[in-house]
Amino acid sequence: MSAPRLAFDDVTGGYGSTMIVRGASGAVSPGEVLCVLGRNGVGKTTLLKLLFGFLPCRTGAIRFDNCPLGALAPEMRRRIGMTYCPQERPVFDDLSVHDNLTLTRADRRLESFRPYFARFPVLESRLRQHAGTLSGGEKKVLSFVRGLAEDQPLVLLDEPSEGVQWENILEMEAAIKEKTAQGAAFIVVEQNLAFAERIADAYLVMDQGRAVLAGVRATMDRARLLAHLHV
């Protein structure tokens, strides 16, 4: 087994004094997709925010390529090779689709997005529109494309399929597979088990802020998985 791209150990944290995530551990290796599953409100989004540094960890350690991240600011995590696509407010509503895609690119050119436009032609047709005028699913697609096109070694996706049409979900799967083939690692928070089952190499199931079940997809007992996902 190769060294993990990102490993987190006994991570605890939340908002203020309220601890949402309580002692979660896990790891993802290059070329792998780790799917974080669980019911609503069990701390999946909070876990991603802890991993990306938006919230401070009360306890535990996060290591990126074996390097402890400590209290590194989010914009610095982006610089060392992490990408984050949030669940809520995934795009800049006030900016055009074009500006959303090229915000941090010096040349503002769209060349590198051509392959994505082939998969998601809707984006190309909306380039001049304000992103705020897109539908929820279209925003998710925009956010997904922006994130993947950053070509980073680690991508954190928070419910990328939410509100997205099935054919676009399939395009997302294909795009993720393409990236993992090139060695990128993904941590994907998902509610959509069908999608998760198509992309996941490993699962991390959370309940009440704790990682209650973890394992590779091949050996995961589907019944136990479902038991944690349904009330």
Partner: peptide, 9 residues
């Protein structure tokens, strides 16, 4: 938050 996520300080 998203600006930060995209590396803008």
């Amino acid at each position: 938050e998203l600006a930060q996520a995209q590396g803008i300080s």
